[in-house]
């Protein structure tokens, strides 16, 4: 099938190799070729955008320009990277003056942003290019209707005119594995990752409310498609238990881990042991 240029970012490989590995293995099962982009820079996150808009657009335009030369779409598993790349892509596509200024800078490195390579989130590639039907055909170990809450992550969905991704994409992808999507009141709410450096208490509170809302609605598991959201919802659970005595025991899995298991990958192949809140109970929920 198709080939994609992968922009892996820094957080996924540094903190969540289980996300990276499960993404690769799932892609392989569908015949997608993922090639790492070489010599690309960190997206800088919204914090760079806040302090240095020009620098932020420049590093991301540089990445997009490098992807242009590969002639493949650029695919990332991280909402933060996706938000940065897609926003800059949108800006440079719609604002000619800005694009000219950026390209004047990129010219020094012999690069040019043309916008031929579109930044895309890995789940959208699964949904659009592979398609639900092809996925369904390859599911060998469907789940038994276990309730999974979805945390989409802000920069996956919003601003909608920039990201062009609707919530249905991920909920359909979860349903195709045989799991049930648990609707909960705070489904849109932010995990709090962005304010972690400026207001830790607020960040913890947001994560806690989110987890509580999921749990109250009856979720047995939750899924995320962003390493920063995973920090907040998975790692933060340990802190919540130790510092505040709030125990949720809600395993947080990256979507490719869930899909991978349903496709017949074993728990080590998707790195299930690395999830902070033990995620192995999900192995009890394959359809009999």
């Amino acid at each position: 099938m198709s080939t994609y240029s992968v922009y892996i970012g820094c957080s996924v490989p540094a903190n969540y190799p289980n996300y990276e590995a499960s993404m690769y293995k799932v892609a392989e099962l569908f015949g997608l070729t993922l090639e790492y982009l070489e010599d690309v820079a960190c997206c800088g996150s919204p914090n760079l955008r806040a302090m240095d808009y020009w620098g932020w657009t420049l590093v991301n335009a540089r990445t997009l320009a490098i992807a242009d030369s590969t002639e493949h779409d650029i695919v990332t598993p991280c909402n933060g990277c996706f938000g940065s790349l897609k926003d800059v892509y949108h800006l440079l596509k719609s604002d000619t003056d800005y694009r000219n200024r950026i390209n004047a800078e990129l010219e020094r490195e012999g690069l040019e942003f043309r916008g031929t390579s579109k930044p895309r989130h890995f789940i959208e590639v699964l949904y659009t290019d592979v398609g639900l039907e092809s996925i369904r055909k390859k599911i060998t170990k469907p789940f038994d209707g276990i309730g999974i809450a979805i945390h989409y992550g802000c920069h996956l969905l919003r601003p909608g005119d920039v990201t062009e991704i609707t919530p249905e994409i991920l909920s359909e992808l979860v349903r195709v594995t045989g799991a049930d999507v648990v609707e909960y009141a705070l489904w849109k709410q932010c995990c709090g990752a962005t304010v972690l450096p400026v207001d830790e208490a607020l960040a913890i509170r947001l994560a806690r409310d989110k987890l509580k809302s999921m749990k109250d609605a009856g979720a047995a598991f939750a899924t995320v498609v962003c390493p920063a959201c995973c920090n907040q919802l998975d790692l933060q659970q340990l802190g919540l238990r130790e510092s505040y005595g709030e125990q949720f025991d809600l395993p947080i899995l990256f979507y490719p881990q869930i899909l991978g298991l349903a496709l017949g990958l074993d728990e080590d192949e998707v790195g299930l042991g690395m999830n902070r809140v033990p995620a192995k109970p999900i192995l009890q929920h394959f359809s009999k």
Binding site: V6, I8, P13, A21, E38, D39, V40, A41, V59, R62
Partner: peptide
């Protein structure tokens, strides 16, 4: 353990340093 390269693949730390060194961040 997961058969991944030990270092962050493809990421150029020099590029960030170079680009941002000359902008406001620098």
């Amino acid at each position: 353990d997961l058969d991944l390269e030990p270092d962050v693949p493809g990421l150029s730390t020099d590029a960030v340093k170079r680009v941002l060194g000359s902008t406001r961040t620098g």
